[in-house]
Design a protein around this nucleic acid. Structure first.
Lengths: 230, 230
DNA sequence: CTTATATTTAAACACATGTTTAATATTGCG
DNA sequence: CGCAATATTAAACATGTGTTTAAATATAAG
């Protein structure tokens, strides 16, 4: 007894009969797949998430991925476009729009606040850009970093021309340092947290941002010995 | 004609008969597996390399992985121990040995030279430490970063006590910035190269190191306005 | 010389993966 | 209503994965 007696454990939440279901405004399989794909792909990476996991999370079947997106990679790309769009507009707009008045410290604050508010950006970069076979590397280089980098370098060059940065500063190396300071703390969160005793709570993030902006500006500005500015 | 006529394409290089082979000093299957595992695991990551790929590279069969190391993970761990050992000794020794005389700039130079000379360190960190399911994360936190970080923070604290660093500097945040500046340029090499027009040749690496050391020291040292030191 | 032990190959195994197919039920249009 | 287009499920498919096994053979031990 008690072999199959109680709770036969139906796994499927929404038991649906075969064939086209009746109209239901709350049932949007395509969006459910995109939502599930966002949650799983962005956290664990393309390779580490199976089509079945996404289907289960979206309360449907793997065949629906094929039906709506062709295959797993098509779903990944559609999901990415939806996720990246707002961020791309944000960085492109804020830089080109108020281009003249922005300074390096403000740029650092913007970048770090964006990275802190969207943790999936860091995991996406680790899994799909920095990893050798990352599915997002080419697009990222072309559409994100490829557009961002020239603006950052131009900003630094202008700041150097205005005298707020050291004259012998290499803007390419400085841009790399700036990005390192802004991005790495969020990539390395899982290590830096326990090892340095960081909590990554809001208050600490703000202190980190202030610290970073000051470090970069001071480090890129000061000459070996402070020059006598007339 | 010309269907199966010519070159039957034997894939196996070393055609060996079944059973225990005769003694041959040049044939060390265990070492060959470790070598192949180093080359492949460190470049592409644990998940992206198959047992058969390693076996082929070592000119043997997947069953030998089971025979000598139990399974794929056992081979990975044995390979890691062999690869990490020298690096661990290097960082541990050089820091605790000449502990009193080292300064932050020298620390930066050491770290960056090590990262530049061993490209596999960066790929290993991306694939097996920063990635969520990285097989090396726990060990890295315990044995590498967990030992390194306290030494770095103590070094910074001493430098601050000696007056060469700003008094209100948060050593934990400064340690994070220092690591960001040292490590990220090598993690992001595939992006920073094309996007910033960097070549990562020896001469440029040296300029990057000099630039980074100067940026950090100046950024962590200078007060908002240079204090009048008597 | 005999027997046990070590090392290796080829083949199979069990399982998970992305993908496709056949069946089926609903919708919407003529 | 009738019928094509649409949306869905369950099942199968092909392939690749880590792993295990059985057989084979050379060496070592007694």
């Amino acid at each position: 007894m008690s072999t199959t007696a109680h709770t036969p454990r139906r796994r499927r939440l929404r038991v649906r009969s075969r064939g086209r279901p009746p109209v239901d405004a709350d049932s949007d399989v395509r969006s459910a797949l995109l939502d599930a794909a966002s949650k799983l792909f962005l956290k664990h990476g393309f390779e580490r998430v199976t089509a079945r996991q996404i289907a289960v999370a979206a309360e449907t079947t793997p065949a629906m991925i094929h039906y709506y997106f062709g295959n797993k990679l098509g779903l990944f790309r559609a999901m990415l476009e939806r996720a990246i769009g707002p961020v791309r507009e944000l960085i492109a707009g804020s830089l080109s729009q108020a281009g003249a008045v922005i300074d390096p410290a403000m740029l650092i604050r913007m970048h770090m606040r964006t990275a802190a508010a969207n943790p999936w950006i860091a995991t996406l970069i680790v899994n799909e850009v920095l990893a050798e076979k990352g599915r997002f590397r080419a697009t990222f280089i072309r559409d994100v970093a490829g557009r961002q980098a020239p603006l950052v370098m131009e900003l630094l060059q202008r700041a150097r021309g205005a005298g707020s940065l050291r004259q012998d500063l290499d803007v390419r190396l400085a841009a790399l340092s700036l990005m390192s300071l802004c991005i790495f703390p969020f990539l390395a969160r899982a290590v830096a947290g326990p090892v340095l005793g960081l909590t990554y709570d809001d208050e600490e993030i703000e202190r980190l941002i202030t610290h970073t902006a000051r470090l970069f500006v001071a480090g890129a500005a000061s000459a070996a010995s402070p020059e006598h500015h007339a």
